[in-house]
Simulated scan of single mutants.
Amino acid sequence: MTALTYLLAGMLVWGGIGWLVDHWVGTKGIFAGIGAVVGIGGGIYLIVRRLGA
């Protein structure tokens, strides 16, 4: 359950930051997609680092 939480939280937080950047720059979803991918990568990093999976 913790691993799923790390993945979802990373995707939502970084995707949200990307959405804000999209809104500020005037693009449509480019940075939100990049942010979601970065968030998933960060979530995987945390899973490996903290849970040793």
Rank of each mutant, 00 (worst) to 15 (best):
V48M: 01
G15I: 05
L8G: 03
H23S: 15
M1S: 11
L12W: 05
A36Y: 07
V21M: 01
R50V: 08
K28D: 14
T5K: 10
H23L: 13
W14T: 00
V48A: 07
G43I: 00
G33E: 03
I17E: 00
L4G: 05
L20H: 09
V38S: 13
V21A: 07
K28Q: 11
A32F: 06
R49M: 14
W24N: 12
L7H: 06
G41L: 11
F31G: 04
V37H: 12
T2L: 11
W24S: 15
L7G: 01
A32W: 04
I34N: 03
A36Q: 15
A36V: 15
V37E: 08
L7M: 11
A3R: 13
D22Y: 01
G10A: 03
T2V: 12
L4P: 00
G26V: 13
G16F: 04
L46M: 15
A32V: 03
A3I: 09
M1Y: 04
R49T: 12
A3V: 06
T5H: 02
L8H: 00
W14Q: 06
M11K: 14
I30K: 00
A9I: 12
I44A: 11
G10T: 01
Y6N: 00
G10Q: 04
T27R: 07
I40F: 15
W14S: 09
